[in-house]
């Protein structure tokens, strides 16, 4: 296995251009190390940790720019994230163990593109985008278009995620990230649900709502039909229940060793209902009636 530790994005991109599918990019390494030990060793390992300027959390044009090498623990201990992006903070807080959070990076979590990846559904409901660099171009890609399957993204073999831009949600909005797992943070989520809700000025009806579902489809998804069923309407318990059922129908989970598809749908329904009710109460100070 060849090994490179490029010092610049340009150097990394030229290595990716040269090695393509042979290469594996490693950041924190908490997933890649397991692959090296238990799957095939890649032909070449590109360790991007020596590239300067890829870690950090900064306010930027009505939002936050997060460097891909920022560790999950850095997100969790950032007052800015906790204050302005609590849905993302909650995902960081429920991310594996402290030891893993100290090493794993948000960029690694995103590029891993696991359907259960903890930070992904929050990024979808926050309508965040990634800055993606290739040797010949650079684009801003909303994460809703970024994931194409388990482990697959629009980065392909030659792209590098160089920044994560998260716009601030409306000041009146409130949200939650709910993770379902047997043992809590340590486990891979059986289901993850992120909800962000914005009431209208009278706090009567739903102005905007976003629902992200994790671990129930080949990629993290938005529950578009459930969202549409709520927009512009007062949030009644009946509507809330109906939206949760819609979300469950939008999921396309599989049976695996962690749970059955049927159970995952039940959980999507339960957590969406819970997430909507909690977020609505936080946003309006009232129960859904």
């Amino acid at each position: 296995m060849e090994y490179f530790a490029p010092k610049s994005i340009a150097e990394a991109l030229s290595l990716l251009e040269r090695y393509g599918g042979e290469a594996k990019v490693i950041a924190g390494g908490t997933d890649v190390m397991v692959d090296i030990k238990y799957k095939e060793e890649p032909g070449c390992l590109i360790n991007i940790k020596a590239i300067g300027g890829l870690a950090g959390i900064k306010e930027n044009n009505g939002g936050v720019r997060i460097g891909p090498l920022t560790t999950i623990r850095d997100l969790e201990t950032s007052a800015l994230i906790r204050d302005k992006l609590p849905v993302l903070w909650e995902a960081a807080h429920q991310f594996a163990s402290l030891q893993i959070r100290n090493t794993a990076t948000i960029g690694g979590n995103i590029c891993r593109a696991s359907p259960s990846g903890e930070t992904l559904t929050p990024l979808l409901v926050l309508e965040a985008s990634g800055n993606i660099a290739f040797s010949d171009k650079e684009t801003a890609e909303p994460f809703i278009n970024f994931f194409s399957g388990p482990g697959k993204t629009t980065l392909g073999a030659k792209g590098l995620l160089t920044a994560i831009d998260v716009p601030y949600p409306a000041a009146e909005s409130r949200g939650v990230y709910l993770k379902h797992a047997v043992r809590g943070a340590m486990d891979i989520a059986m289901v993850g649900v992120a909800v962000l809700i914005t009431p209208d000025a009278a706090k009567k009806a739903v102005r905007d709502v976003r629902i992200g579902l994790g671990a129930v489809a080949p990629t993290p998804i938005r529950a578009a039909k459930a969202e549409a069923s709520l927009r512009g309407k007062p949030l009644t318990p009946a509507l809330l229940k109906q939206a949760a059922e819609l979300a469950a129908s939008e999921a396309s989970p599989i049976d695996d060793q962690r749970s059955s598809a049927e159970y995952r749908r039940w959980i999507v329904e339960a957590l969406t209902r819970r997430g909507l009710a909690q977020s609505w109460k936080a946003a309006t100070g009232k129960e859904a009636v």
Partner: peptide, 27 residues
Amino acid sequence: CNTGECGACTIIFNGKPINSCVTLAAD
């Protein structure tokens, strides 16, 4: 476990506890 799931290999790395089994020696 050698996969970062049990904590038996925890060390303090630049002031923070980490799992040494899923960290590159190069780091």
